[in-house]
Amino acid sequence: MQCGYFDSGVCRSCTAMGTSYRAQLDAKLSHLRDLLKPWPEATWLPPMPSSPSAFRNKAKMVVGGTTERPTLGILDATRHGIDLTGCGILLPGLTAAFPAIASFIGQARITPYDVPSRKGELKNVLLTESPEGAMMLRFVLRSTEPLGRIGKHLPGLLTDLPQLSVVTANLLPEHKAVLEGDEEVPLYGETLAMRLDDVVLHLRPASFFQTNTPIAVGLYRQAREWIEEVGAHNVLDLYCGVGGFALHVAAPGRRVHGIELSAAAVESARLSAAEAGLLDVTFSVGDATALEALEGLDAVIVNPPRRGLGANLCAMLDASGVETVIYSSCNATTLAADIAAMPAFRPARVRLFDMFPQTDHYEAMVLLQRR
Rank of each mutant, 00 (worst) to 15 (best):
G156V: 06
P173K: 07
G148R: 14
N170K: 03
N170S: 10
K152F: 14
M135D: 01
L164N: 04
L127I: 10
G156F: 08
A134H: 11
L172T: 11
T128K: 14
E129D: 06
L154C: 08
R149I: 09
K152A: 15
D160C: 12
K152Q: 15
R138S: 15
G156T: 14
L126Q: 09
E132D: 15
L164Q: 02
L172C: 12
M136L: 15
T128P: 13
P146C: 02
L126F: 08
G156H: 06
K123N: 07
P173T: 09
L171A: 09
V125Y: 02
N124I: 08
G156M: 07
P131A: 03
L164H: 01
G148F: 10
V166E: 00
L164R: 00
V125A: 02
D160N: 11
A169P: 04
G156P: 09
P146Y: 01
L161A: 01
T168A: 12
L158D: 07
E132C: 13
L141A: 03
T128W: 12
L137A: 08
L158R: 06
L127C: 08
G148W: 07
L137P: 01
I150C: 09
N170L: 01
N124K: 06
S143N: 06
E129A: 07
Q163G: 09
L141Q: 05
G148T: 12
L164G: 00
S143I: 03
E145L: 10
V125L: 04
L147T: 12
Q163S: 13
P146I: 00
E129R: 10
M136C: 03
P173Y: 09
V166D: 03
Q163F: 08
K123C: 03
V125W: 06
V167A: 08
Q163A: 10
P146D: 03
A134Y: 02
L171Y: 09
L158Y: 05
G148S: 14
K123S: 07
Q163P: 07
L171T: 09
L171P: 11
L158V: 09
S130T: 11
K152D: 15
S130N: 09
N170F: 00
D160G: 11
D160L: 13
S165G: 13
L127G: 06
T128V: 15
N170D: 11
L164E: 04
M135A: 07
A169L: 05
G133H: 12
L164S: 01
